[in-house]
Write a protein that binds this DNA or RNA. Structure first.
Lengths: 100, 100
DNA sequence: TTGACATATTGAAGAACATCGATATAATAT
DNA sequence: ATATTATATCGATGTTCTTCAATATGTCAA
């Protein structure tokens, strides 16, 4: 049962921005609209949409439309996969494993 | 016993480059000179030095001079810490733990 | 179908970054 | 001291990225 492989460069690039990590933290355990995120981050709406697109393309957020809004949430599963793959590649002698 | 905290933005930025990940992979389990890395990557020497400096600043490689050479090796400990911190921040419901 | 609201896309400007040739610094041997 | 080898720094160039105003698209209500 081989895991679907993760492109660790794409993964790292996707999370390598302060604004993006702010967004990720905010919608980590919640389903938030773009406007919610705009308000909580004090970042312009096009900027938020841009970052959400990058995260989406990397598979790190899920989105669903509800009426006029589009709700986003962090894909923790993918985050964990990315982290584990990085650790597997670059810390093979300091094992890190997913639990549960 | 709180772990020394990791700046996940700095960590992600440090590993968010293809050439850097090539270098990291190459000196993951070996102590290599800059020239060794140059030869194994087909990247110009100043470029390699530049990337090594970024990794060093982020605490992700260790270096020691041996004669004229400077030997580098990936700091797996720090890599594991970085990965775990990212997972802790962004995948709290999909636990990832360091072993051993 | 018009208006109001929510999000996405476009386009432009500036910042940050990767790359490498040229050169400087460091270490060693003769 | 000088030459040789190894690495680091400098400086310039082109690329990628972030940001946001303006605008387009999508959704729904009246």
């Amino acid at each position: 049962m081989k895991q679907k492989s993760v492109d660790t460069v794409e993964f790292a690039k996707a999370i390598a921005d302060e604004t993006r990590q702010k967004i990720m933290a905010i919608c980590c355990c919640e389903l938030l609209s773009v406007n919610d995120i705009v308000e909580k981050t004090n970042v312009a709406q096009p900027t938020v949409s841009h970052h959400l697109k990058i995260l989406k393309t990397a598979g790190l957020v899920r989105s669903e439309r509800r009426g006029k809004q589009v709700l986003y949430t962090l894909n923790q599963e993918r985050m964990a996969e990315g982290c584990c793959q990085v650790a597997e590649n670059f810390a093979p002698e300091h094992p890190v494993e997913r639990m549960g």
